[in-house]
Nucleic acid binder design. Structure first.
Length: 226
DNA sequence: CAACCGATGTGCT
DNA sequence: GCACATCGGTTGA
């Protein structure tokens, strides 16, 4: 792609209500997890490809070295979790259960970040269906029925599949300054519309397993579980 | 409904 | 080995 084209669509992105690095500079990890609710995660897989958008309806905070459920617990710092130590707003993608990915954004706090757990699909839904179907075929060759809208991205790995996110593309990318993944200001979510619960799938994290670090939009049908 | 379980890579112990 | 920030199909009440 020529520099001219690149700057053209970068400006397009910038002209929308794009969330900047100030957003991440001005919030703690837990504040970031809450403030991301209602915002819109945007994805473009190729320069002229369709733009995929989904409203963030569920997040979890992982606060760093003191958090026994966090990948950086006890100061563990490896090549894989390095994005959590990079500037707030850096994408961190890791593989789980051998075949799925989870998508996080680093936040304020050393080794801290926010896991995105569910999106409400807004734009590019046909493309998301295709991406989900492609991912599912690896497991079940016969199944190609379209999914119900609320099943497209109501889970941390489902949203990665729906947006074509993996460790080779968005990992380490700065979400405040990228042409392929960015955030836009969405609907305002008031404090009374945010539900806090313990995080999902955490079993061996001692007292930290029960901390109310999962946040979701109260009446959303698109969260992973209630 | 819920409970169980297979697929599967990576990083511990 | 074993656990894992999961998903989706199957089994059985």
């Amino acid at each position: 792609m020529s520099g001219e084209n690149r700057s053209h669509y970068f400006i397009q992105n910038q002209s929308l209500n794009r969330i900047s690095s100030d957003f991440f500079a001005n919030h703690s990890c837990i504040e970031t997890a809450k403030a991301l609710l209602g915002q819109v995660l945007c994805r473009r897989l190729s320069p002229k490809g369709p733009i995929l958008k989904g409203k963030i309806v569920e997040t979890e905070s992982y606060t760093g070295a003191e958090d026994e459920a966090c990948n950086t617990f006890n100061g563990r710092r490896t090549e894989a979790n390095e994005p959590l130590f990079m500037s707030a707003g850096t994408c961190y993608v890791y593989m789980t259960y051998g075949m799925y990915y989870c998508f996080n954004i680093s936040s304020q706090g050393l080794g801290a970040g926010v896991l995105l757990r569910a999106l409400e699909p807004l734009e590019g839904i046909d493309c998301m269906q295709e991406l989900r179907a492609k991912a599912r075929k690896r497991v079940d060759q016969s199944n190609s029925k379209p999914l119900m809208l609320k099943m497209l991205s109501n889970g941390p790995s489902k949203l990665c599949m729906a947006l074509g996110i993996n460790k080779n593309n968005t990992n380490t990318v700065d979400i405040t300054n990228s042409d392929e993944i960015w955030l836009e200001t969405g609907s305002h979510v008031s404090e009374t519309d945010i539900v806090s619960t313990k995080r999902v799938g955490i079993s061996r994290a001692g007292l930290w397993a029960d901390k109310p670090f999962r946040f979701y939009i109260k009446d959303s049908e698109f969260v992973s579980q209630k």
